[in-house]
Amino acid sequence: MQDNRGVWVYVEQNEGVIEGVSLELLGAGRKLADKLGVPLSGILLGENVKNLADEIIYYGADQVYVVESPVLRQYRTESYMKGVILLAEKYKPEIFLYGATPNGKDVASAVATDLSTGLTADTTMLDVEVEKRLLEASRPAFGGNIMATILCKKHRPQMATVRPKVMKALERDTSRTGRVIEEALEIREEDMRTKVLEIVKDVTKKSLTDAHIIVCGGKGLGDERNFALIHELADVLGAGVGGTRDVVEAGWISHDHQIGQTGETVTPKIYFAVGISGAIQHLVGMKNSEIIIAINKDPNAPIFGVSTYGIVGDALEILPILIKQFKHAFREKGGEMTYA
């Protein structure tokens, strides 16, 4: 365990494009590595992906470990796990971070089992205790009303998956240089039990995470019928519609609209939080939005703590006025509102 050194970031690429969360983790990992005085490494797997190594260095890595193989063309637990374990057993990192995406969580869970080490899921805060070289991985716990810091004292590497859009990527710096280390993976396609037959991207469905404006409703709206006002305001603004965990559980809106720890993390330009009290599990999913407008009856609701502007009042009274006044404002200026 004493031999383990260095901070690693699993760099997820899909069809040759690096996921945003991996760049964010290079930013977060850079800070941890500097505190510990060790190099930051990016871990890159795929088929013909070596050309991405420079990007990983531009975003903060000192070195990049690359495993290329035809069996890594698409993500599969079986092959990716073996590639990651190969590197981890040979080069022994002390900290290893993954994006909390479907594939990132999948590979991390398998790797942690084989390496018999600890894995903290969906963290939203990272730090290190330098003297003991301990990763402090914090996450909302128990339905999201409180934060817990998870430690892994006796096993290495200390691993965590990290929520997208909560860490900050560094500025891309093309003057940065680093080392690229290649390793070969000895797996043949015939040994694989799993095949990806088809990948279907839903291009028609606009992802909530891409929306520039989001109107999100909570249980303060009372019932499903009132939730229609959220859709109406969103229509006027050309915005995406979100719901809290409670609202999704109640069936007022489908799970792909859920914002928070177990739903999407969003960072729109404008976020309307309507009838939402602001449990931690919701706040982690939206608090990095540029402008947050909170509407709630209770002036002490935690949502006002993260809001840019707050209106204390009954959402059912405020929403119709918002809809009316926005409509009026746009009509006056003669056109649709668009995002610049």
Binding site: A148, I280, I292, G305, Y309, V312
Partner: peptide
């Protein structure tokens, strides 16, 4: 391998304009 080091309520942010 993992243990809960501590539990905490995050410091209350100041909030914006009401």
């Amino acid at each position: 391998p993992t243990i809960v080091g501590k539990m905490f309520t995050p410091p209350k942010p100041e909030g914006g304009h009401m």
